[in-house]
Each structure stands twice: as structure tokens, then as C-alpha cells.
Design a protein around this nucleic acid. Structure first.
Length: 504
DNA sequence: GTTCTTCCCA
């Protein structure tokens, strides 16, 4: 990728623009074949006026780059450092490995002891006699065993066992629980729906002066179903002097980030308002998160306002901002504006990578503009970005959604040729696509195929195949699929969802 | 015997 080597607005772009804005746009008539000075090319959507009263569904292309151009540093700014001299963790040999093997064995024994606890058997006493060497690793292993085996029958008993063990461990000589260990018990409580116990645990941490972490917050917020409770939690964490929010610069960003991972967009808005009210200044991360939330909530006006405000406050968009902008432009079916933005990014030293292209293509696919998807996919390859599984899957999914299965198939074949392994998402799309063209047998064999390639189908693959077969009146084939699934021992607990199916 | 989440796509 050579910065400054622009994506060509060529014929393809002209064709795309016809879809973008039929009435007025740069390349609409052959006579004005593109004044290509930057200031011209930003006027993709005419003069920045929104189209006739229509709800603007994408980024208003006339706005963003023009204003950004005024504020952004000149080309040749700091390039995005993409150094991934990743950490080389060795899987662990020798003593380290033995340590963990021993821990696992002890954890198994302790778990069995805990299960026997009850009238006539004191787990505490048995643990005292066993005298295991208490360490964080051991406690984590034991509690992990409890977490993964929680079910509807034991969900009342297990949290008590977990806490009993936790208390016992905390009383052992030379050992003290840290935040991380509290978080693990809290995870057990969360898994069992013991919300009150989780709050008590939080109190306990406070009493002991133990710091709480983003993980603590995450567990609690996920278990707090009511809006009021969630807000109370946020307020509490913001005020908490023991809130360890590193590596974030402030507690607000740590909270916002957590809320983003659990898709709590309205809460993000609320926290943001609170943050401003309390006089805390947002940084680029804050803007990126809040803008994403606004976009997800469909509040594009506010999205734009924030983008403007961000620039006014002297913040330069980073690669995350661009990702979001590209997705918005794609979803709003504004390929030309996207093209300009991509070129602009190269100019300012933020060279688009495979993620940027994929984000854009995903948006365009959702907008149904397959022509543009194709154009940017090709450009991505030309720019030296190797398409990965996700890029291919996005293309395949878009073609399938547009009812062009043959094209999807071509991309699927192509990815195999290029050595990209399809995964569950890819297969899911392809199987769905095969169903849409009535190739049910092929769909079923692809389902078996993915298993052979070490790719376990998820339940939604099965369920969508079954319902498509049934909708096509092919009940016996649908039953074959269900039988295949049960023979594999997959998702037996979800079998009832197929309704009416009897295992023979 | 240890920190653990910077935000980005299906």
C-alpha cells in the first residue's frame, strides 16, 4: 500500500454514483468527468444539502470531509503504527506445566469434596484434612468447575458451596483473596442469578478496601436487569475511589467501554451526559464509543453533531472513527463518499486496512449495493490488503441476501483457492444460500462438510436449515437433519425447539 | 503461581 496512491474514481465509481444520488452528484453526467481536486470530490452529495426531506440514513457526505479537511493535520501525519510484534507466550513446559497439572488434580479433588457437603459431611473439615496448597490458580480452577457445571437443578446449592470454599480458602495461612478472586466468585453468583449476593460481595470488597475492577463492573451490570439498578451501579462505580479502571484514562471511559461490549447504548448516552455534566472532558475514545452508540440507536443527527464537536475540540479521527464512518457511509449507500474518505485517509497517513474495507463492504451489503461491494473488494485486493475470512464472509452474506447465490458460490470457491478457511459464519451463509436456490441436498452435505473440516455447526445453522426444509414441505429431510444433529450429540437440550419431532 | 480487557467487520 502506497500512501497517496489513490483509489481510482473511474468508470466503476461513476456507475456506483448513479445509485448513490440519482439527481445530482459529481459523475452523473459524462461531461463533467470529475473535477478531482479534493475540495470538489467532497461534494458528493451535491452541496451538502440533504435530499428532499428524506430521512438521511447515512453520513452526510458533504459535511464530514470538507470540515475535517480544515481541521485535520496536513498529509504525512503520524502513520498508524501497525506493529504486531505480538507477545510470544510459550505454552509452558517443565515445571510450569507440572504446576498446572497438579492444580487441576487438586481442584478435581476439592470439587468432589464440596459436592459431598451436607448433613453428616463437613466439606470444611475434609478440606482442612486435605491441606491443599491454596493459590489463586487453585481457587480459580475450583470455582471454574462450579461455573461450568451450573444447571437448573443445582443453581441454588452451588453458589453456597462456592462461597463456603471461598471463605475457607481466605482463612488459610499466608493467603489473602485479591480482587481477581472476588471476581471469580462473583462470576459463580452471576451464573446462578444470585444478584443480591453479588452486591453483598461488592460491599465486602469495599469493607476490606480491595479495589474493584472493570471486570467487577461487567459482572454486576450484566446481572442488573432493571434500568434503575444499572444507573445506581454506574453512579457507584464513578464515585468509587477504589475503582481500578486502568488502562483507561478515567472511570467514565472504562464504564463506557464495558457498556459498549454489552450493547447498552442507551446507558452509554446517559453516562455520557453525566460525564459532561460533571465537567469531565471526553477524549477520542469517548467520542468513538458515544458515536457508535448514537449510530446504533439510529440517532444520526446527534452522531453528526458529535463528529463536529469532536473536530471543534481538536480531536483527530483515528482508525476506529474511520471504521465507524465507513460503515455508516456504506449502510447509507454512499459509495462515492466512502471512496473519498478512503483516499483522504491515505492522505492523512491513516492507510485503510482490511478491516476498514470490510466494514465498508458490510455496510454496502446491508444497503444492497452489491456492485459497490464488488468494487471495493477488488480495490482492497489491488491495494495489497489480503481479504480474510470475514471479508469473504461479508461478500458471501451480501450476495446471498441479494439473492445472487452464484456469485456467493464464486467467492466461496475463491476463498478456498486463496487458502482462507471458511468458518461457522461462512458455512451458515452458504447453507442459507443453497436453501434459497432449492439445493437442499447440497445444503445438507455442506453441513456435514463443515463438521469434517473441524467446524462445529452452531444451533442456528441447524434450526434455519430445518425450518427452510419444512417450509419447502420437505419434512422427512428436515427430520434427517435433526437426526444427524442428535446422533452427533449436539444441542440435545434444544431439541424441543424443533417441536413435533420425535426421536425414533 | 502473575496484569488481564482500549473501541473496529460476518
Amino acid at each position: 500500500m502506497i500512501p497517496g496512491a489513490h483509489l481510482p474514481p473511474l468508470r466503476a465509481a461513476r456507475a456506483l454514483s448513479a445509485r448513490l444520488c440519482p439527481s445530482r452528484h459529481l459523475y452523473s453526467d459524462g461531461s463533467r468527468n470529475g473535477g478531482e481536486s479534493p475540495s470538489d470530490t467532497v461534494h458528493i452529495n451535491g452541496d451538502g444539502v440533504r435530499e428532499g426531506g428524506e430521512e438521511v440514513t447515512g453520513l452526510d457526505a458533504g459535511r464530514f470531509p470538507r470540515e475535517m479537511l480544515l481541521r485535520l493535520p496536513p498529509p504525512g501525519g503520524p502513520p498508524e503504527s501497525d506493529d504486531d510484534d505480538g507477545e510470544n507466550f510459550s505454552p509452558g513446559h517443565g515445571p510450569r506445566r507440572r504446576f498446572f497439572e497438579d492444580v487441576r488434580l487438586e481442584a478435581d479433588r476439592i470439587f468432589r469434596i464440596l459436592l459431598q457437603d451436607g448433613p453428616g459431611f463437613s466439606a470444611r473439615q475434609a478440606l482442612d484434612e486435605m491441606r491443599p496448597k491454596v493459590s489463586n490458580a487453585l481457587i480459580r480452577e475450583v470455582l471454574f468447575r462450579i461455573v461450568v457445571s451450573v444447571d437448573s437443578v443445582n443453581r441454588e446449592r452451588y453458589p453456597k458451596l462456592a462461597y463456603k470454599f471461598f471463605v475457607w480458602a481466605g482463612q488459610q495461612e499466608g493467603y489473602r483473596h485479591n480482587t481477581s478472586m472476588y471476581n471469580v466468585v462473583m462470576k459463580v453468583f452471576a451464573e446462578c442469578g444470585e444478584v443480591k449476593a453479588m452486591w453483598r460481595l461488592l460491599e465486602e470488597m469495599a469493607e476490606k478496601g480491595l479495589p474493584v475492577s472493570a471486570r467487577t463492573f461487567h459482572l454486576l451490570i450484566c446481572s442488573s436487569g432493571k434500568v434503575g439498578l444499572r444507573r445506581r451501579l454506574v453512579e457507584r462505580f464513578i464515585k468509587l475511589s477504589t475503582f481500578r479502571y486502568r488502562p483507561f484514562r478515567n472511570a467514565f471511559n472504562a464504564i463506557l467501554h464495558t457498556l459498549l461490549t454489552i450493547e447498552q447504548y442507551s446507558l452509554i448516552e446517559w453516562v455520557h451526559e453525566k460525564m459532561i455534566l460533571e465537567g469531565h472532558l471526553p477524549d477520542i475514545l469517548t467520542y468513538n464509543i458515544v458515536m457508535r452508540a448514537k449510530y446504533m440507536l439510529g440517532k444520526l443527527d446527534q452522531f453528526h453533531r458529535l463528529l463536529d464537536e469532536m473536530g471543534q475540540n481538536g480531536f483527530t479521527p483515528d482508525l476506529h472513527t474511520y471504521n465507524l464512518l465507513l460503515h455508516v457511509l456504506g449502510k447509507g449507500d454512499k459509495p462515492l463518499a466512502a471512496l473519498n474518505l478512503l483516499n483522504y485517509m491515505s492522505d492523512v497517513g491513516c492507510v485503510p486496512n482490511v478491516l476498514h474495507f470490510t466494514n465498508l463492504i458490510d455496510g454496502l451489503g446491508r444497503a444492497g449495493n452489491l456492485e459497490a461491494c464488488r468494487y471495493f473488494f477488488d480495490e482492497m485486493v489491488k491495494k495489497g490488503c489480503e481479504p480474510d475470512v470475514v471479508s469473504y464472509t461479508v461478500m458471501i452474506t451480501s450476495y446471498v441476501a441479494a439473492g445472487e447465490f452464484e456469485e456467493a458460490q464464486r467467492f466461496f470457491d475463491d476463498m478456498l483457492v486463496r487458502g482462507q478457511l471458511p468458518n461457522v459464519y461462512t458455512y451458515n451463509s452458504m447453507i442459507g444460500g443453497l436453501c434459497t436456490v432449492g439445493e437442499f441436498d447440497k445444503a445438507f452435505s455442506m453441513l456435514k462438510d463443515m463438521e469434517l473440516h473441524g467446524c462445529t455447526p452452531n444451533f442456528s445453522v441447524y434450526s434455519s436449515l430445518v425450518s427452510r426444509l419444512r417450509n419447502a414441505g420437505k419434512d422427512s429431510q428436515a427430520n434427517n437433519v435433526i437426526k444427524y444433529m442428535t446422533d452427533k450429540g449436539h444441542y440435545l437440550h434444544l431439541l424441543s425447539r424443533f417441536g413435533g419431532y420425535k426421536r425414533c
